[in-house]
């Protein structure tokens, strides 16, 4: 099934083809989970969102029109909207608002977590306003082009570039003090 285009897989899914369902998930489920994980900050919520996205795929597979949109872009769009809805319901009404900064004094748990490079970077990501976080997630982590990211976010390419610039500057500042140390650890595997 490796060479089969997504559109054909979706058509087979609509007919109840089990192997097509598995192949579609093999190609895309991990990316949807990753998108939601970076937007929401935890795996359980991310899997809930991914489940909802794929349930919609199962439900609407019959109506999918090949060539009208790229399937992966459509998935990102559905996943993005569900994530933003979840964030709104959690009280983040203003999607450009900057979240409250974390306490200066880390708890024992946070101090332990901060030893982990990956957790520290993730914490910095979670401190970004949602739309900046979304832009960097789509561009850097999901590998979308600026045009695709603009389509998913329903904004202009210029707006995506602006959000990305602000996001990366904020991340650079958040990680500046430990950047050298983090890079050294990563390079030495410590």
């Amino acid at each position: 099934m490796d060479g089969i285009p997504d559109d054909e897989l979706v058509a087979a899914v609509a007919k109840g083809d089990e192997s097509a369902c598995r192949e579609l998930m093999k190609r895309h489920l991990g990316r949807v989970v990753a998108l939601a994980r970076r937007m929401l900050g935890n795996q359980a919520d991310a899997e809930e969102i991914a489940q909802e996205v794929f349930l919609r795929v199962w439900k609407h597979a019959e109506k999918w029109e090949p060539g009208r949109a790229q399937f992966s872009t459509w998935l990102h769009r559905v996943g993005t909207n569900l994530c933003l809805d979840r964030l709104r319901k959690q009280g983040m009404d203003d999607l450009d608002a900057i979240p409250e900064p974390a306490s200066e004094d880390p708890t024992p748990y946070e101090a332990m977590a901060q030893k982990d490079v990956a957790r520290r970077v993730d914490a910095a990501l979670q401190q970004l306003p949602p739309r900046q976080r979304l832009a960097i997630t789509l561009s850097h982590y999901q590998g979308l082009t600026n045009i695709e990211a603009a389509e998913v976010m329903e904004v202009t390419v210029e707006a995506v570039e602006s959000l990305l610039g602000r996001a990366r500057r904020a991340l650079k500042a958040a990680l500046a003090t430990e950047k050298d140390e983090l890079l050294r650890r990563m390079n030495t595997g410590a």
Binding site: M25, V33, V121, L125, I136, L171
Partner: peptide, 26 residues
């Protein structure tokens, strides 16, 4: 900065999620 950002964690989807979705497939 790219190298640092790429260190952010990401986990594979759980087997339970895959099986739930397979159970709900058309």
């Amino acid at each position: 900065l790219d190298t640092l950002l790429s260190a952010a964690p990401v986990e594979e989807p759980s087997e339970e999620l895959v099986e739930r979705l397979m159970a709900a497939r058309p």
